[in-house]
Simulated scan of single mutants.
Amino acid sequence: MALTRVYLPLTAADLEALADGRDLGTPPVPAHGVTPALGTPGLVTDEEELEHLAWEAAADEADALRDGDERRVVASADLDAGVVSVPADGDVPSRVELLAVVPRSRIVSFHVDESAGDTGTADLLWFDVTELGDVLDLLARD
C-alpha cells in the first residue's frame, strides 16, 4: 500500500506516551499533509514544497498546543494512504484526519524548537525517531 507523509503537532504528554511504547491519538487524529486544497504536485509547485507548507501548518498548530513558552514539537509519520482522509470542511488547506491511531513504528522524525518560546520555523531542530529520549531531555531542560 502507498504511504503518505503527515505532520502531527504534539504535546509533551504525546511524547511521553510514545516513550512508553503507546501509539498516538484517538481517531480521527488531526494532522497535516499534502491535500488538493494545498496544491497538486507538478501543477503549481513540487511535492517537497507542498510538504513543507503542511509541515509549517503543523508547527503553527503546535504553537496553540503549548503552555506558555514551551518548545513546539511536530512529528513526521509515514502512514498507509487509506487511513488519511481530507475533511469536508477544509478550514485549513493542509488539514487531514487520520482514521486510525498513529503507530509509533510509523513515526520517522521529530522537529523541535531550538529555544523555548520560538515561533518561526527556521529554528526547528530535526531529530530522528531513535532520538526520542534526546527530545524528552531537551523539553525537560525548560
Rank of each mutant, 00 (worst) to 15 (best):
Arg141Ser: 15
Gly68Tyr: 01
Glu47Ser: 09
Leu38Lys: 02
Ala2Asn: 10
Gly120Asn: 10
Ala19Leu: 05
Ala2Met: 10
Arg5Cys: 06
Val135Asp: 03
Glu61Phe: 00
Ala116Met: 07
Val135Ala: 06
Asp118His: 06
Gly82Ala: 13
Ala58Met: 03
Val86His: 04
Asp123Val: 15
Pro87Val: 14
Ala2Lys: 09
Glu70Trp: 00
Leu136Gly: 07
Ser105Trp: 00
Leu8Cys: 05
Asp14Lys: 05
Arg104His: 13
Arg66Ile: 15
Gly82Met: 11
Pro27Leu: 06
Ala54Pro: 01
Trp126Cys: 10
Ala100His: 09
Val101Lys: 04
Pro87Asp: 11
Leu24Arg: 06
Ala37Glu: 12
Ile107Lys: 02
Leu50Trp: 00
His111Val: 06
Asp23Phe: 00
Gly21Glu: 07
Leu50Met: 03
Val86Phe: 03
Thr26Phe: 02
Asp91Ile: 12
Leu99Tyr: 01
Ala122Gln: 11
Ala59Thr: 12
Thr4Ile: 06
Gly133Tyr: 03
Glu49Ile: 09
Val112Trp: 00
Asp23Pro: 10
Gly120Thr: 12
Leu132Arg: 12
Arg95Thr: 13
Ser76Ile: 10
Pro30Phe: 01
Leu65Phe: 05
Asp118Leu: 05
Thr121Met: 02
Pro30Trp: 00
Thr40His: 08
Asp89Asn: 12
Asp14Ser: 09
Ser76Val: 14
Asp134Glu: 14
Asp113Ala: 09
Gly82Lys: 13
Thr121Leu: 01
Gly39Thr: 09
Leu18Val: 14
Ser109Asn: 12
Ala31Pro: 07
Pro36Phe: 05
Arg71Ser: 11
Ser109Trp: 01
Ala122Lys: 09
Asp78Met: 14
Val73Asp: 03
Val135Trp: 00
Ser115Pro: 01
His52Arg: 10
Val34Glu: 00
Ala2Leu: 08
Glu114Cys: 08
Leu53Trp: 01
Ala13Trp: 00
Arg5Val: 14
Leu18Phe: 02
Asp89Trp: 04
Gly68Thr: 11
Phe127Ile: 14
Asp23Tyr: 02
Asp23Ile: 10
Ser109Gln: 15
Ser105His: 08
Val108Ile: 15
Arg71Val: 14
Ala88Pro: 12
Gly21Lys: 08
Thr130Asp: 11
Phe127Asn: 12
Ala100Thr: 15
Leu8Arg: 04
Leu124Ser: 06
Val44Met: 08
Thr35Asn: 05
Leu125Met: 14
Phe127Lys: 15
Asp128Ser: 11
Pro103Gln: 11
Val112Ala: 06
Leu38Ile: 06
Gly42His: 05
Ser76His: 11
Arg22Asp: 13
Leu24Val: 12
Ser115Cys: 08
Leu3Lys: 14
Ala17Glu: 05
Pro41Leu: 02
Pro36Ser: 12
Gly21Phe: 01
Leu43Val: 15
Asp14His: 07
Glu56Cys: 08
Leu24Ala: 06
Glu114Arg: 14
Asp69Phe: 08
Gly33Tyr: 00
Leu53Val: 07
Tyr7Cys: 02
Arg106Ile: 10
Ala122Pro: 02
Ala64Pro: 02
Glu61Trp: 00
Arg106Leu: 09
Pro27Trp: 02
Ser109Asp: 13
Ala57His: 03
Asp67Trp: 06
Asp128Thr: 15
